[in-house]
Design a protein around this nucleic acid. Structure first.
Lengths: 136, 136
DNA sequence: AGCTTTTTGGTACTTAGGTATGAGGATGGG
DNA sequence: CCCATCCTCATACCTAAGTACCAAAAAGCT
């Protein structure tokens, strides 16, 4: 957040400096006015692209981020969430057990709890719901 | 594609007109030069944002589009693909049957074929693979 | 018309997924 | 220390998913 403020402050300063500079060139020198206007136009064009790209990137990050708060609201425990993640990768209960070093029974228990908390009837539905809630 | 060319052509014309207009005001009238420069800056700033937004949207569309060609390469038939889509929505075989007005047996056959063609062992894995291949 | 692919559906069987219930060990807060 | 929560695992049971094999109607193509 501090970085954002800093960048924007510097940007505004630079814009102001450019503005002063252009009027200076316009009044005090004999450089052609078209050149001044054209360069100002170019610089602001680039600034527009830059700012827009920044805001777009932020949007992508937000939409691609996972909502950790919602995981808490749903009452999903650590282990349950881990199991959910493996489910979305398409693993079977057995494979999940091997990956997390627990028995298949344990995985089944976790899966059952996950389905309950996500209000899903099948693991495929859990995948869909988890995606909608942006917790994966 | 024609629309894009048209828009860009109009844009370039508008920019050129603006440029001529600004130099005209600058040389022939007594409007303050700062105003001219500032408005040119503003316009080009907005143009920068607009163009950037357009290109971004195109990117999003490309990344969000589904690869129909790949569906053909995989040998997935119409019905099989429809079933795959319903699988990714989290429906059971029975529900898919009701939605597509066929028996559960038929759905099972289609699912089996889909798994074979996607080289998946489970429907959850099929979801994952289909996503990677950008088929859904 | 003859051929291929698709779509449909069935039976029989195996495996995976999911539920219910209980229970013991680990952890952390009051 | 006690209680709640989490994690672990097991048994028993039922349902859904998936496989194998077959078969017939429908659609497309040459």
């Amino acid at each position: 957040m501090k970085k954002t403020v800093l960048i924007f402050g510097l940007l505004i300063l630079a814009v102001f400096a450019l503005f002063r500079l252009s009027t200076y060139y316009y009044t005090r020198t004999d450089i052609r006015a078209e050149l001044v206007i054209a360069s100002v136009a170019l610089v602001f064009f680039l600034i527009g692209i830059y700012l827009n790209k920044r805001s777009m990137q932020r949007k992508v990050k937000v939409s691609g981020g996972i909502d950790r708060q919602k995981i808490g609201e749903l009452g999903l425990s650590n282990r349950e969430y881990e199991v959910l993640v493996e489910i979305t990768k398409g693993l079977s209960n057995k494979e999940i057990g091997e990956k997390l070093f627990v028995s298949e029974s344990t995985v089944k228990t976790h899966v059952s709890n996950v389905l309950l908390k996500l209000q899903a009837r099948r693991r495929t539905q859990a995948i869909q719901i988890a995606k909608e809630l942006q917790i994966i």
